[in-house]
Computed example of a mutant assay.
Amino acid sequence: MDDFDSRKRKKPLDRKTALLKAADYCAYQERSQQEVRDKLYGYGLHRDEVEETIYELITQGYINEERFAKAYAGGKFRMKGWGKRKILQGLKQHRISEYCVKKGMLEIDSDDYFNTIIKHLEKKRPSIKTDSQYILKGKLTQHLIAKGFEMDLIQEAIKQVLSEEN
């Protein structure tokens, strides 16, 4: 460790102060247990202190995994236009339980979901300059896979959008 690292590190917080800071952190926006756990370790708390603090935050209602999953899934879909696969991957990175993941995914309406795919296609289509239908379909598919959408819905949406063009 060089001098810069040692100057940057602050002395660890006591558990009471860390609890107050973590409560403020959770009050600002929905947080997963994992995000809070990482923050608490960053404050210099040890494993037992971190788990006790997490437990207190849950019992006080600051952390709720189901509420987080719903906010995350709904937000990423509505604000960023992500597909279910990408949202699912994000929830798994937050170590959300399977039950809460399912609850979160219910926030996405299937009609809105398909319409979002269509909007992505209509927005992307003009930027692809090619006369080949094969290349066009490939690039549109690639774009939607990167957004996290499922292949069967991608194919159905591409078929619909391209048939409207002709």
Results as ranks from 00 to 15, higher is better:
Y113N: 07
I96G: 02
R67F: 05
L91S: 03
T116C: 07
E49D: 08
M79T: 13
I118F: 04
H120P: 00
K70G: 03
Y55E: 12
E49V: 00
C100D: 12
A71V: 06
C100M: 11
T59K: 15
G44Y: 07
D38Q: 14
L106W: 04
G61V: 07
G42H: 09
K123D: 01
K123T: 06
Y113M: 06
E49Y: 05
T59P: 07
E56V: 04
G104M: 03
Q60F: 14
Y99D: 14
G74L: 13
K80T: 09
Y99H: 12
D111T: 06
H46D: 12
C100F: 05
I87Y: 12
K80H: 11
I117D: 03
K86C: 05
I87M: 10
R47V: 08
Q93N: 15
R37W: 10
S97Q: 13
I117W: 02
Y99E: 15
E98I: 01
S110I: 10
E107R: 09
E98L: 10
L40N: 09
E98P: 01
A73L: 05
Y72N: 04
I118W: 00
I63T: 01
E52G: 10
Q89R: 15
I108A: 09
R85N: 08
G81S: 08
K123W: 08
D48A: 11
G61T: 07
A71R: 12
L45V: 11
Y62K: 06
K92Q: 12
E98N: 13
A71Y: 03
E65A: 13
E98Y: 09
V50N: 09
V50A: 09
L121Y: 01
V101I: 14
G61E: 05
F77T: 08
Q60K: 15
Y99P: 00
G90A: 11
E49H: 03
G90W: 14
E51Y: 04
R85S: 11
